[in-house]
Design a protein around this nucleic acid. Structure first.
Lengths: 118, 118
DNA sequence: CCTTTGATTCGACGCATGTCAACATAGACG
DNA sequence: CGTCTATGTTGACATGCGTCGAATCAAAGG
């Protein structure tokens, strides 16, 4: 309501955020933005969901495909929303089912930050 | 197969952790182990500390070098311990000061999971 | 030995977050 | 139109986690 947190701005380019971690010390602002992405993958359930979508055929998966992550269905929806807010996933309703898809630029950005190459 | 490029280290393997996230759905156990690493970098302060150590000359930094992260010094120590427990940092006491150093294999493992391909 | 400086640990507080049950919403189909 | 299935949202609860001040440990030096 009155709390306007950080909006998930999605940029088309690969580097929406920061240089490689080994290149320069991150500023406070950079760290906040970057940590949000890592935190999104810092939960076992979310990581499984993300991996499940990322490895699914066609690069997308509907919620009906995932029901064996060990948590209730509302919890799955909650985590998917978190991943979507972090910009790591996108959702699209197609008829009865909702399909989730990974955002490649985000994954690339994170990988770039962990790689010594930039 | 030739994604290894050049590894000056003697370590042949990156880490016995997990395959790339886009290759296969992670199991529950894999997800727990992997999420711990991402969670370690999921905090702004820890991310700054890690980046500060990783980018410091010689690949190491002592605690005395870092005092401008915005939190008290016990908190810095607390976060450094978390990073050490996650296997991302190693510490060594040398005289009066304690020096921290990044564990390259861990960073490589995380980058590999995100598909660091150039 | 005692003091000084650097670093970790302890105890406590408060906010953030993962989880679920219950309810609400969106299409599909008869 | 009504009902059924599929997802998302809300409210509440318990736990986790970041933070600090104070106490404790470790090394150096007078």
């Amino acid at each position: 309501m009155s709390n306007v947190e950080t909006l998930p701005l999605q940029q088309p380019d690969v580097t929406p955020c920061c240089p490689p971690l080994t290149e320069r010390p991150l500023s406070a602002e950079e760290a906040v933005r970057t940590a949000a992405m890592f935190k999104a993958l810092g939960d076992p359930v979310r990581l499984r969901l993300f991996s499940l979508v990322a490895s699914h055929e066609g690069g997308e998966a509907c919620v009906c495909d995932i029901s064996d992550v060990g948590v209730s269905q509302p919890t799955v929806s909650h985590h998917l929303k978190k991943l979507k807010d972090a910009g790591l996933l996108t959702s699209e309703r197609r008829g009865t089912w909702v399909y989730y898809r990974v955002e490649p630029s985000m994954v690339a950005a994170m990988g770039q930050m962990l790689g010594t190459r930039g």
